[in-house]
């Protein structure tokens, strides 16, 4: 079994933390993993993407081949669409619906109409949920929660365990907040 995931968003939205959590869970579960990160120029408010590959057999390429990703998991709706060529037929797009408007010509209507026309697109208003539940810094973990049911290769329990693990150095309060964010995300994921 394999899962290829494209994580995307805008620099600073915390997609690498999502990757870290999934990565931790994968290693604990004895899965093979490759995760190609983006560092450098792209981090100053530019587009960022990270390919995450999980498998119970050996993985060779650090990059996800075209047309093979199972999930695009995005913190930003336009950034989700940018990586569509990687998705396979029947793959899922799971994305925050809140546009990050740091460019002048943001094609909001276009982005929303494409997303709503797709069969396998799950859009979630992460920002509103984060605001309503007073967890603004955990928007990325809410998104992970929403996607948990689609991952397949790792269970939500395994992911929760890794949230504990990854945030432990930051203190129990932060761990609890992120676990709450994860559960909140799961609720919304189930409703779709």
């Amino acid at each position: 079994m394999k899962k290829d995931i494209i994580l995307s968003g805008v620099g600073g939205q915390g997609i690498l933390s999502i990757a870290t959590i999934i990565g931790d869970a994968a290693v604990r579960a004895g899965l093979n993993l490759k995760q190609a990160e983006v560092h450098g120029m792209s981090q100053r408010g530019g587009e960022v993407e990270s390919g995450l590959r999980l498998s119970d057999t050996e993985i060779f390429s650090d990059l996800v081949p075209l047309g093979t990703a199972d999930i695009i998991l995005s913190m930003e709706p336009m950034e989700a669409l940018r990586y569509l060529p990687y998705l396979h037929e029947g793959g899922y797009v799971i994305t925050s619906s809140s546009p990050f408007r740091n460019i002048g010509n943001y094609p909001e209507e276009r982005v929303m109409s494409v997303l709503s026309s797709m069969d396998n697109a799950v859009t979630i208003d992460i920002e509103e949920i984060a605001g309503k539940n007073a967890m603004p810094k955990s928007a990325n973990v809410i998104l992970l929660g929403a996607a948990a049911g689609y991952l397949g290769i790792l269970s939500p329990e395994q992911l929760a365990e890794s949230i504990r693990n990854v945030f432990a150095p930051k203190g129990e309060r932060i761990v609890e907040m992120n676990l709450r964010a994860f559960e909140t995300g799961r609720e919304y994921g189930r409703r779709q």
């Binding site: 805008v10 620099g11 408010g45 950034e79 569509l84 060529p85 460019i103 943001y106 094609p107 982005v111």
Partner: peptide, 10 residues
């Protein structure tokens, strides 16, 4: 990539 998606430079 759907038409109309624009780049987001740093």
């Amino acid at each position: 990539i759907p038409e109309g998606i624009v780049p987001r430079p740093p």
